[in-house]
Amino acid sequence: MSATVPAHEPAPTPFAFFMRSTLRAFNTNKTSWVGLVIFLLVVVAAILAPWIAPHDPLEQDVLNRLKPPSAAFWLGTDNFGRDTLSRLLYGAQISLIIGIVSTFFAMLIGTVIGMGAGWYGGRFDTVVMQAMDVLLAFPSLILGLIVVAMLGPSMTNIIIAIALTSIPPFARIARAPTIAVKERDFVEACRSLGFSDLRILSVHILPNILPEILVMGSLWLANAIRTEASLAFIGLGVKPPTATWGGMIREGFENILDSYWLAMVPGVAILVVIFALNLLGDGLRDAIDPKLKGEA
């Protein structure tokens, strides 16, 4: 027993509390660290692309078409003599921008819809969630494909299409806790103090569901990147000659018989990014959901 009994620790600031629980979540499942590190490496590589790419990703070199990997072209060249490594680095920018922006909007809109449905309940809740279920059941690739085909393959339209298909899961996870918290005494107290719905929802309910939404975000970011690549592979990506991973696979697939690396390299890149995000999200989900701890 120490002589000095420590006084009550001051309550941590919300930010410190958030950081501490995040750190604890990461340490519960070490694979989340692996996922995070790999993903951040890709992000850094994408940001540094203009400085580290050995060649211009759009520069055509007819004398060096379809060259296998060499000292000058580490990952070989494509049908137009463009450097695969440089295109891969620039392509990462497109994948990440589309993935992150569309997931962000899906998260935002989905959370608002889910919290609104849970808070107001009744017929509004039934109709909205039914619509979400239908949207969830509809094949997201098909829906994305149709939206992009109708609106035209631009970066904005691809983001709209992917965001649209990713809204329902966020609405679902935002709704249930809202309903659970709604009946608690402290919410009743807030109401009797005359707090507005908006204030109760954003200050008192949102923090409770934020961790779960962020974890879902990392898993759906993986999905968004995959959908973008799939659309580009079908021919509905950001227009060529801009380098996109799905587009590179599409072009490489045409030369699969003699230059297999053209499709393989971007294919492995996509796989690594998605796997890293899944490792990250899956590990964190175990950590924040006590019911699933060490289970799923």
Binding site: R226, A229, S230, F233, I249, I256, L271, F275, L279, D282
Partner: peptide, 13 residues
């Protein structure tokens, strides 16, 4: 986890 990270067309190729 690796399996469900595969885009279907990459696995197919």
């Amino acid at each position: 986890l690796l399996g469900l990270s595969f885009p279907a067309f990459v696995a197919a190729i």
